[in-house]
Design a protein around this nucleic acid. Sequence first.
DNA 1: GCGAACTTTCAAGGATTTTTGAAATTTGTG
DNA 2: CACAAATTTCAAAAATCCTTGAAAGTTCGC
Lengths: 195, 195
Amino acid sequence: MEVETLSCTAWRFIHHFGEMGSRWGISRTVGQIYALLYISPEPLNADDLAHLLTFSRSNVSIGLKELQSWRLLRSEYRAGDRREYFRAPEDVWEIFRTLADERRRREVEPTLTVLRECLLESATTPHGEHVLNRLQAMHDLISMSNDWFLDIQKLSTDDLTSLMRLGSQAQKLLQAKNRLLSFMRSEEQPDTSSN
Amino acid sequence: MEVETLSCTAWRFIHHFGEMGSRWGISRTVGQIYALLYISPEPLNADDLAHLLTFSRSNVSIGLKELQSWRLLRSEYRAGDRREYFRAPEDVWEIFRTLADERRRREVEPTLTVLRECLLESATTPHGEHVLNRLQAMHDLISMSNDWFLDIQKLSTDDLTSLMRLGSQAQKLLQAKNRLLSFMRSEEQPDTSSN
DNA sequence: GCGAACTTTCAAGGATTTTTGAAATTTGTG
DNA sequence: CACAAATTTCAAAAATCCTTGAAAGTTCGC
């Protein structure tokens, strides 16, 4: 049997994620539905969601459809029950990875396309040339971040967390590697550089 | 003398960023104002913006106020002209860093606060315990990302780009470092490990 | 301190987005 | 195939967010 009401803590969390969702291009309803699915110990059907969150059935249906388009739901059926039961993936990292990748596909890729198309134009005035330089700079930043994300996304959760824990220390490691390489090169060819 | 109209390319870019802004919790107007300031070779005043984008003067005023609250504008005055002229910072990376940091302060920090307050409650049921476990997992992810960002943010643009170019390769570098360290330890104390 | 040049505020109107109940559609079962 | 159970669609109502002109507020030079 399902729980009939939400605990105070659960409600606080759900409410906050509804608000956050609305600042991130996801409607309040969708944010709340996902927050509830995220904390629920067992999968819920659309009626459960409508009842617990006091939304209309159709609103829940629209919200679930949207969440599915973000690939954020798992669903299953139960014996002797024709209703579909939904849940969020167990692993929070997986959820965030999916979310980030979907935003990348929906927003970053189209933005890169627009920038690239704009950059095909050639400048006829100094003013126009400045505009193209600015677009190029933005293109380079977004393109690089996009590539970086695609690369990073391949890592397992464990590798990703160890890399994040390293943080800016990685920079020092990189410098150390470069020093080591140039040292090894100078050992091989002691006369190449007069430094 | 100011340019009277926007080129086709400029308009395309501005329009696209207005749309993107509206998907990211920034209104269309604010997105367009910032896009125009970003590509403009010279600073613009509020009247220029209202005229070029065909917004009302008051709408521009509200938009500029919002952009200032995001710390995204530089402003200056000209001799013999009492109007304030605005521009975006030259460096795109600086712009994105500021944007990310402001979102972190406005959205991530409050979310961590809510999660921490929820986690102070103690579970009285198995159901409640599951909820707390889920909140803890989300807290840990967000907290770690937040720390990572604060750490990364200190890097110069050059260091940051070289780190991004390294991407997931950094992971291999990290593993190499660990192997090197454990090798050096085993050299010091050959009998500690039987491996 | 006055007036002109700018800027901001505000309440009203407009536009867009959300939410809903009712109707239509789909799906599984006998 | 016909039904009942569940889901989705849709047009309208509700809520929210944007935009504006007019009025109030600031700031500067005289």
